[in-house]
Design a protein around this nucleic acid. Structure first.
Length: 399
DNA sequence: AATCCACAGGAATGGTTGGCAG
DNA sequence: CTGCCAACCATTCCTGTGGATT
């Protein structure tokens, strides 16, 4: 039994040749549809080669439009070129969601400059001084990339510290590239930080369906065996993703899932049908992911709803096909469920607020009941299979 | 037609929390 | 570290609405 599971993984895939190419972290040799941005960023950074400090750059655009990929790509090319000409250029990529304070950012920079050394427990100023002396001594030209910079606490201090270094340095320089997908983020910065960070600004527009198609085709060539994927399947995945705000990551996830489905079915090739099914799965995954991070009370509401629905399926009401639940019924069930979990339930008013919120998230659908129901109430449906919701929520600790 | 029921959702208000200047 | 303000969660109270009931 278990051996069978392992064995299927030994067997060579008929579909994939290198599925990593569909991973969001994969940086391909060329980035289609981003030639302009690549050129612009390269031009901005190029002065570093002649020893001048390039402008700090602030990049923004929605998720999955290639901000990180372009930055990493340009940085890699720049480092390669600099190396050939023996110019000490170094790029350091930092994800601020993980390294979310000034101290952690500086630690990360120090880690990159002193491989193998441990900076745990050292003060911020100490680390800062070490960085400065190393940069100065080697004449290093650093480019620090702060990805998801909106997640960084103490942005002004961090930006200020890194930027101030340039005044204290005799040799070398430190430049900053900030990346954000929050379009309103820039306005929330104080004036000084804004002018420092946004010396140069770049906006990445979302991809349209045609651009997404080209991206997918390129990746598919690496990821799939020859002829293992229908061109129409790629076009469909691109179209879906374009509708979904032009997110290339979503498009890639879609194609990956489609490939996995085809493999599970032992199909010869990935078809439009696989993409359609994959979309359901991907969307479901997104929703289930979302459920995991919902406020506790909303999770309990969902749990109560899922239980109600699956309980009714067993009884199989005669006549009416779909199981329908009114908000009053659900409120009772919710109160009961909450008490069972040892959580005090909220008032009916807030319960209704939660229902509306879950509705706007698209997890449930609450529509006016109309005829056949007493009074002015809403009927509530779950937009995803109840058993999946149960599986996710019952696996969690809701108390 | 009048009344009742079962809720929807706005407004005022109070307790918590979390970021931030001092 | 402290105190403050804002944002957020939650309750209470309230008015409105639409169909069922009498």
């Amino acid at each position: 039994m278990i051996e069978d599971v392992f064995r299927t993984h030994l067997k060579e895939s008929k579909i994939f040749s290198n599925r990593d190419a569909l991973s969001p972290h994969f940086v391909p040799d060329t980035l289609p549809n981003r030639e302009r941005q690549i050129e612009e960023l390269s031009r901005t950074l190029a002065p570093i080669l002649s020893g001048r400090k390039p402008e700090n750059v602030f990049i923004y655009g929605k998720t999955g439009v290639g901000k990180t990929a372009v930055t990493r790509y340009v940085l890699r090319k720049l480092e390669d070129f600099a190396k050939e000409h023996e110019i000490p250029v170094k790029g350091i990529y930092i994800n601020c969601r993980i390294h979310d304070s000034r101290h952690r950012v500086l630690m990360k920079v120090a880690d990159a400059l002193f491989p193998g050394e441990n900076f745990l427990g050292l003060s911020t100023t100490h680390i800062y001084d070490r960085i400065l002396s190393r940069v100065s001594e080697k004449g290093l030209r650093l480019i620090v990339v702060l990805d998801e910079i909106d997640k960084l606490k103490g942005i002004s201090e961090t930006v200020y510290a890194l930027n101030r270094a340039n005044d204290e340095l005799e040799r070398g320089s430190i430049s900053i590239i900030g990346i954000s997908n929050n379009l309103t983020f820039k306005e929330s910065l104080d004036a000084r930080t804004k002018s420092t960070l946004c010396q140069k600004e770049m906006i990445f527009p979302p991809y349209n369906a045609e651009e997404l198609r080209r991206i997918l085709e390129q990746r598919a060539q690496i990821a799939f065996k020859k002829g293992a994927v229908d061109p129409s399947a790629i076009a469909l995945a691109a179209a879906y993703a374009a509708k979904q705000s032009g997110d290339a990551r979503y498009a890639l996830a879609l194609l990956l899932r489609a490939g996995e489905l085809a493999e599970e079915e032992n199909a010869e090739r990935v078809t439009e049908d696989h993409v359609r099914k994959a979309r359901e799965r991907v969307e479901e995954d997104i929703v289930l992911d979302m459920i995991k991070t919902l406020p506790q009370q909303e999770q309990i509401v969902l749990l109560a709803l899922a239980r109600l629905i699956s309980a009714r399926k067993g009884i199989r009401k005669l006549g009416e096909g779909e199981t329908v639940i009114t908000s009053g019924e659900l409120f009772e069930a919710y109160v009961k469920t909450a008490k069972e979990l040892g959580v005090s339930p909220v008032s009916d008013r807030w319960f209704r607020e939660y229902i509306s919120e879950l509705d706007t998230y698209g997890i449930i659908r609450a529509t006016p009941a109309g005829k056949g129901f007493r009074g002015n109430t809403r009927v509530i449906r779950l937009n995803i299979p109840a058993d999946k919701v149960l599986k996710v929520l019952e696996g969690m600790d809701l108390a």
